[in-house]
Design a protein around this nucleic acid. Sequence first.
DNA 1: TCTGGGGTCCTAGGACCC
DNA 2: TCTGGGGTCCTAGGACCC
Length: 408
Amino acid sequence: MTVMHIDMNAFFASVEQRCNPSLRGKPIAVIGSAGRTVVTTASYEARAHGVKTGMNKYEAKRACPGLVFVVGDNRKYIDTSVRILNIFKQFSPIVEAYSIDEAFVDITGTAALFGPPLTLALSVKERIRQEVGLTCSIGIAPNKLLAKLASDMKKPDGLVVIEEGEVSSVLEDLPVCELWGVGPRLTAHLSTLAIKTCGQLGRYPVSVLRERFGIIGERLKLMGQGIDPNPVVPIGEEEEAKSVGHSTTLPKDISDKEALKRYLLKLSEMVGFRARGHKLKGRKITLTLRYNDFFTFGRQRSLSFPTNDTRAIYAAASGILDSIRLRTSIRLIGVSISDIVAGCTQMELFDEGRKRESLLQAIDSINRDLGEFTITWGTLLEEECGRHGPGVISPAWRPEGVKRVNVR
DNA sequence: TCTGGGGTCCTAGGACCC
DNA sequence: TCTGGGGTCCTAGGACCC
């Protein structure tokens, strides 16, 4: 197998610089429209000054006083992402949209058409540069794990090929934290076993790893050896989503439950709207809260029936909220449905349920045509929470599928 | 006048059942 | 006087990713 991984360099920031020439060559940071927002992507000029993803505006400005903030625009990023994916599809039918700015392409057996992998990758980079005006880093290797590793090795505008025969020498001294799925906690834990490099990880007795890390332990050893059995999953063949949720950091911390419930209603409608659009219903409703001191927790409730009805989602979530004694004011509130039942096309048994479903369908179709929340629930209109600037898209976005965040 | 939003997978512990 | 022991369902929370 030969896998190519493409990582768009500083994607959101690069798109903004392409669209607005006055931003080119400058340190910029893409942020959200809300007051309490963070840096989503920093341009390379800004990274050189220490600006990082996740910083708040003040930290970022402190690191780089000349920093220019740009409020992100989802539609631009989606359009650009689709154009790039279409380029990949001309080289192979097996294209996985891993996120809005990353993709895997299975290029096994494409040499007769496009030449060896290196040649193919150069053509891809050239087409992206010419047609979209952006640079990317490409990694090519025998599997996804190694291809992702390779694309990470040279940024920006990189191209790295790891041949089958080079795998063990590449991994020997590579720190384990470079592996996809090994974060800070695992890195620290492995370090207590004197495991610092992939080479050491790959040679470690699996029995000890299994005892310490459970099922992950077995996978860790394979990763240390550069083994990854996962196939490239083409667009349209992904598994059904397992949860659908929305959350928001409030403009100001709130203690009053009735005020919180107005946000809850809006979030429930966003979740219901998206779930109904994908014909998904969930049986489990989770309410997520974050206190002003950042302590974050969730409480869930299983229903006796799966639902995507705004009213039922809201009823369950606000019931959970009622059952919690708030220790302090709330900074973030979120709702999600999980325990998903897909393809919920079976008709409601009762007249009442049928009427309700066709009402929701009618509302949804108007909102799809005219913009989200054209028709909305009474109390939403009374409050500032009924209006909502365009959020910055999640990098977990997919071109088709439930992960798509609805943009107006 | 700090610290976004959307996901996945895994584990631990309690309730309950046979 | 106590002490079995699987299996399943459920909730809570951690770790990781983009």
